[in-house]
Design a protein around this nucleic acid. Structure first.
Lengths: 232, 232
DNA sequence: CTGGCTCACTGGACTAGCCTCTTAGACAGT
DNA sequence: ACTGTCTAAGAGGCTAGTCCAGTGAGCCAG
C-alpha cells in the first residue's frame, strides 16, 4: 500500500472472519460475566455455536491470546487471563478509534520522557542520526513537500537515542495513531517550517545533554503540532 | 517439573507450534533483509519450507498481524507493515525478558502522568474505588499477608481514575512485567507497610486534586518499591 | 490505445481425522 | 479409610485435502 493520506482512497479492508470472531467472543465474555480464570466453551462447541470451523476459531483464539485476553491450555481449554481489564480496554479502544486528546496525552507523556533520556544517554551515532533526520526534513520542505518522512525519522531517532526498549515498544504501540495526527498537522500552511524549528530546539537540548530543556522543547513541539487537531 | 523461581509454582507452558513459527518468520524477515512493503513467500510455499500445515501457518500469520508486523491481503500476500521497527523491538524484548531498570523507567513515566490526571479528573466513584483498594491492602497486611492484591487494585483504581484509555492500554501492556516486580518488592520485611503509607500519600494528593503532588508521591512510591530490585 | 476477458496465483475457509494432553473417577493395594 | 494407579472421555494441536474468492498481469478485440 502507498499514499493513503487523508485525501487518498483507503484500501477497502477485506473482512476477515477471525476478526469478527474476536469481537463476538469479547462480547460474549462480557455478556456472560466471565471472570478471570473462567473457561470459555470448548472449541468444538464454540465453533458450532458461532457457525465456523475449528480452524478459523483457532485463529481467533490465537489473536485473543496475543492480545492477552485468554490463555489456551492444552487439554483444559481457553481460560480468561487474570487481567480482564484489557478486554474492555481493547473493546473501548476499537469503538472510538481516535480519541485525539488522549493520544496526544499519551504521546507527550512518552516523548517527553524519551527526550530527557535521549539527552542523558545519546551517543555520537544517535546525534548523527538525529541530525540526518533534520537534514532530510529540511530537504523535503525545500522541495515543497510536507516533510512527513523527515518528521518520522526524527522522532524515531529520538526514541532510539533514549536507549529504552520498553518505552520504545510503547511508542511503537501508539505510533500508528500518531501517524494520522502527524499527516494532518503537517498539512497546515507554514506548519512544516515551524515544526522543523522546534525539532532543532529539541536537537540542541539533546546535543547539550540537558534533559529538562529537552523535555520542555519536546512538550512545546507536541503542543504546537497538536494545536490544530483540538480545534476541530 | 519443579518449583520454578522463588514464589509459587508456574504451570509448565507447553510449546505451541505457531509461537515457534512467529520466531522463525521474524528471524527470516531479518535475515532476508525484507523492507516494509515487501511480500512474504506464499502461504503454501512457506508452509512447506517450515514443514507445517497451512492451517498452522495461518495461526502464526494471525499472530504476526495482531503484533503489527505484517498485513495479510487477500489475493496479494502477506506484506510487511510500514513500521518494521516493531519486529526488532519484539524480538529484542523477548530476548532479555526482564530489563528491570527499563521497566521501572516506563512504569514511573506512565504512572506519574496517570497520578496527575487522576488528581485532575477523579470522580467521587473513582475516589471510592481508591479508598476501597487501600482498605483491602490494609486488611491483607493485618492478616499477615503481603497485600499484593490490594496493591494491584490500588494501581488499577488510579489508572481508571485518570480516564485515559490510551494510557490505560499502555499500562496494561507492561502490567505483566510489573507484576514480577511487585511480588518481589512486597516480599521484603516491613515493605508492605511502607508501601501502604506511600499509597495513602498518593490518595491524599488525588483527593485534594493536586496533580503535582500526586505525581511526586507516585514517583516516590515507585522509587521505594523498585529500590531493592536494583541492588541485585 | 482502451476496455474487457481470462487465467494463474494468492489467501480464506471448511472438513475429516488423528494426535497428545488433562482430568475425573474407578479400582485396586495398603 | 487412605493412597496410588489406571483408564477413558473430552479438551486442544495439527495435518491433509478441497473448494471458494480476490488480485493482477497479459492477451485480444474494438
Amino acid at each position: 500500500m502507498e499514499k493513503t493520506a487523508r485525501a487518498g482512497l483507503e484500501r477497502v479492508s477485506r473482512p476477515r472472519l477471525y476478526e469478527q470472531l474476536v469481537e463476538q467472543i469479547l462480547a460474549y465474555i462480557e455478556s456472560a460475566r466471565l471472570r478471570p480464570g473462567d473457561l470459555l466453551p470448548a472449541e468444538r462447541d464454540l465453533a458450532e455455536r458461532l457457525g465456523v470451523s475449528r480452524a478459523t476459531l483457532a485463529q481467533a483464539l490465537v489473536a485473543l491470546e496475543v492480545l492477552g485476553v485468554i490463555d489456551v491450555q492444552h487439554g483444559t481449554g481457553a481460560v480468561l487471563a487474570r487481567r480482564p481489564s484489557v478486554a474492555s480496554v481493547i473493546k473501548g479502544l476499537r469503538e472510538h478509534q481516535s480519541r485525539l486528546p488522549e493520544i496526544v496525552e499519551a504521546r507527550s507523556t512518552l516523548e517527553g520522557k524519551l527526550a530527557a533520556l535521549a539527552a542523558e544517554r545519546r551517543t555520537a551515532d544517535d546525534l548523527a542520526a538525529i541530525n540526518d533526520a533534520l537534514d532530510v526534513m529540511a530537504r523535503e520542505i525545500n522541495d515543497g513537500d510536507r516533510g512527513t518522512h523527515g518528521d518520522e525519522l526524527f522522532h524515531q531517532a529520538i526514541t532510539a537515542a533514549a536507549h529504552s526498549s520498553v518505552l520504545a515498544q510503547l511508542m511503537a504501540f501508539i505510533a500508528e495513531m500518531i501517524l494520522e495526527t502527524r499527516m494532518e498537522s503537517l498539512g497546515q500552511p507554514g506548519r512544516p517550517e515551524q515544526s522543523l524549528a522546534s525539532h532543532r530546539k529539541i536537537a540542541d537540548a539533546i546535543r547539550a545533554q540537558d534533559p529538562a530543556a529537552a523535555t520542555e522543547a519536546m512538550l512545546a513541539h507536541i503542543d504546537l503540532v497538536s494545536d490544530v487537531e483540538l480545534l476541530r
